[in-house]
């Protein structure tokens, strides 16, 4: 689990977009999973994107689909039949605490609930890498903590690499991991921030 921080406008989102292949470099080289993305054709991008789960600050759920269908979306894109994944998706929604909101549409979900659906959607294909862009930016602090616990569990249980961009310093402090800091076009690795105030053991 790695955090990416930096002042607003430093280019965190752009860097992440390059990483999750929403943007391709106009100059220079971006290598993902050892592949130079600027050399890939449109067709070759899709398999690479499937190895990355993305969580957005603004959730980006499809409004006309239920929570269950939103989580199942990547599996549908892969052409899997509903019978093969149904139980897994329900299990996953239970894990994020939405076992009773399977049929709810995004309009009826709170911000925190939406983000948990989005997390479940990013995880459902068991990607090699999960990228989250300000995942706690639109939820309150308590929900932020809850989401963070989900990330940590994800990191430990599935052994998935997480790259989280945030300027929520409280979140970074709790993680106690190294932080990548982006400023003036340079990414610098800084050691885990030392906690000023003692943290109660979880």
């Amino acid at each position: 689990m790695t955090f990416l921080t930096g002042p607003s406008g430093a280019g965190k989102s752009t860097l992440l977009k390059l990483a999750y292949l929403a943007l391709r470099p106009t100059a220079g080289r971006v290598s993902m999973f050892g592949v130079d993305t600027s050399r890939l054709s449109r067709k070759e991008l899709a398999p690479l994107r499937r190895r990355i789960g993305v969580i957005f600050q603004e959730f980006r759920l499809l409004d006309h689909l239920t929570a269950y269908e939103n989580v199942a979306l990547p599996l549908r894109v892969l052409g899997q039949h509903e019978k093969t994944y149904r139980d897994d998706v329900i299990e996953l929604l239970k894990w994020v605490g939405l076992g009773d909101r399977l049929d709810a549409r995004p309009a009826t979900l709170s911000g925190g609930e939406k983000q948990r659906v989005a997390i479940a959607r990013a995880v459902v294909v068991k990607p090699d890498l999960i990228i989250a862009d300000e995942p706690t930016g639109n939820v309150d602090e308590e929900m932020g903590d809850r989401l963070f616990r989900l990330f940590r569990e994800l990191n430990k249980r599935l052994n998935t690499t997480l790259l989280i961009a945030t300027h929520d310093l409280a979140l970074v402090r709790k993680a106690k991991t190294d932080v990548l800091r982006l400023a003036d076009g340079m990414v610098v690795r800084v050691p885990a921030p030392v906690d000023a105030s003692p943290v109660a053991p979880a």
Binding site: A22, L73, V77, L78, G79
Partner: peptide
């Protein structure tokens, strides 16, 4: 467009 973009990022091919 939002949906199409999301589908792309989910790994959907153009043909899908």
């Amino acid at each position: 467009r939002d949906m199409v973009e999301l589908l792309h990022l989910t790994g959907a091919k153009d043909t899908f």
